[in-house]
C-alpha cells in the first residue's frame, strides 16, 4: 500500500507558528485582564457594531463619559449580529456587573435574556432603540430618538419647502433594519397625505455611500427628467446621491432637494455648501444621559420608560459653517 506523503513543513514555519502564539499571548495580556478593582461601578455596554460614523460616535460618547465618571466599563461589540449581543449580555450577567447599557440591534428577541438580567438584579438601560417585550419591567428605561418621528419631520419640512409638489426618490437603509423601516414609515405617511407629492422610486442603498451612489445612478438613468427630491435614510447614502446627481449634470441642493437623517459633520458641511437642504438629527451622544440613568436607578429613583432624545432639524436657516465645523462626529 502506498502511503500518502505529505510534504514536511519547513522549520521557518514552525517558528512562525510559535511567534504567532507569543503574539496572541501578548495581545491578550498586554491589554490587561478584566480587572474589577476600580472604585466606581462596573457597567457593561453591549454595542451593536461599528459600521457607521454614527455608531462610532455613540460608542465614543459612552466610553468618554464612563472615563469621566470613573466607571469601570466593560465593552462588547456584537459585529452586527444579535446572537453575539445576547451572548454579551449573558457575559455581563455572569460577571455580575452593576448595570447593563444595551444598544439593541433589533427590537425583537430580548424577553429571555433581559429577564435573566432582571432575575440577577441588574438594571438595564436601553439606548437608541427600544425592545419589543411582553413585560416592560425587565428594562429600566430607554433613551432614544423616535425614528418614525424623524421620518415625519423630514416629510413635513419637505411639504412646507416644496409647497406640496414633489417627485421623490427614496434611498432606504438596509432591508429589515429598524431605522430603515421606521424612517420610511414616518416619511411615507406624510407624503401619502398630500396628493401633489409622490415617491417615484424607493430602493435600498444599504446605509453606505458606495451603494447609495450606485443606486442613485441607476434611478437617475430612469427618472432624471422628473425627480425633484432625494430623501435618504442616512447621511452616507445622501452624500453618495449628491455625487451621482453632480455626475448626471444636476445641481444637488438647487435643482434637486436633498434630505438626509443622522446629522454628522460631513452632511452638515454639505448643508452649509448648499448641496443638501435638510438634515434631521439623530443624536448619538447618549453617554451622559445613559450614566445619569444608571446613577438614578442605583440611588433608588424611578425613570420614565422612554426618555425621548430631542432631535433637531437643520436647514440653511439655522446652520452656519462654524456649527458644522464644530460638530464632534
Amino acid at each position: 500500500m502506498i502511503m500518502k506523503t505529505i510534504p514536511s513543513t519547513p522549520l521557518i514555519l514552525k517558528r512562525a507558528g510559535l511567534g504567532l502564539l507569543a503574539l496572541c499571548a501578548a495581545v491578550l495580556t498586554g491589554c490587561g485582564g478584566g480587572g474589577g478593582e476600580g472604585a466606581g461601578l462596573t457597567v457593561g455596554f453591549a454595542q451593536a457594531g461599528a459600521e457607521s460614523a454614527w455608531r462610532r460616535a455613540e460608542t465614543a460618547s459612552i466610553k468618554d463619559e464612563a472615563g469621566k465618571r470613573g466607571v469601570n466599563l466593560r465593552f462588547s461589540d456584537a459585529q452586527g449580529k444579535q446572537e453575539n449581543q445576547i451572548a454579551a449580555v449573558r457575559d455581563f450577567i455572569a460577571q455580575g456587573v452593576d448595570a447593563i447599557i444595551l444598544a439593541p440591534i433589533v427590537e425583537t428577541g430580548w424577553d429571555d435574556v433581559l429577564g435573566e438580567a432582571k432575575d440577577a438584579g441588574i438594571p438595564v438601560v436601553l439606548v437608541d432603540r427600544g425592545v419589543d417585550v411582553g413585560d416592560d419591567s425587565i428594562y429600566a428605561t430607554l433613551i432614544a430618538s423616535d425614528f418614525v418621528a424623524e421620518g415625519k419631520m423630514a416629510g413635513e419640512w419637505l411639504f412646507k419647502k416644496s409647497g406640496g409638489k414633489a417627485r421623490i426618490i427614496e434611498l432606504e437603509g438596509t432591508p429589515g433594519a429598524a431605522p430603515a423601516i421606521d424612517r420610511k414609515k414616518g416619511f411615507d405617511d406624510v407624503i401619502g397625505q398630500h396628493a401633489g407629492m409622490e415617491i417615484i422610486a424607493s430602493q435600498s442603498g444599504d446605509f453606505n455611500i458606495e451603494k447609495g451612489k450606485e443606486v442613485m445612478e441607476a434611478l437617475l438613468a430612469k427618472h432624471a427628467g422628473e425627480v425633484t427630491v432625494v430623501y435618504a435614510h442616512n447621511d452616507d447614502m445622501a452624500l453618495g446621491a449628491i455625487q451621482a446627481l453632480e455626475a448626471a449634470g444636476k445641481k444637488p441642493g438647487e435643482e434637486v432637494i436633498v434630505i438626509s437623517i443622522d446629522g454628522g459633520k460631513a452632511a452638515l458641511t454639505a448643508l452649509v455648501e448648499g448641496k443638501m437642504n435638510c438634515v434631521v438629527e439623530c443624536l448619538p451622544l447618549l453617554g451622559p444621559n445613559a450614566f445619569d440613568a444608571v446613577e438614578t436607578i442605583r440611588a433608588g429613583g424611578t425613570l420614565p420608560k422612554w426618555q425621548k432624545v430631542d432631535d433637531q432639524l437643520f436647514d440653511a436657516d439655522n446652520t452656519d459653517a462654524a456649527f458644522a465645523e464644530n460638530r464632534p462626529y
Binding site: 512562525a16 507558528g17 495581545v27 466599563l73 465593552f75 457575559d91
Partner: peptide, 24 residues
Amino acid sequence: RFQGLESSDARIALGILLLAFITM
C-alpha cells in the same frame, strides 16, 4: 468579548487566534 475589544481589534484578534490555531 471578555477582553472588551473594539470592533477592529476584535476582528484582528479573531483573525490572529484562528491563524495561530490552524497553523499549530
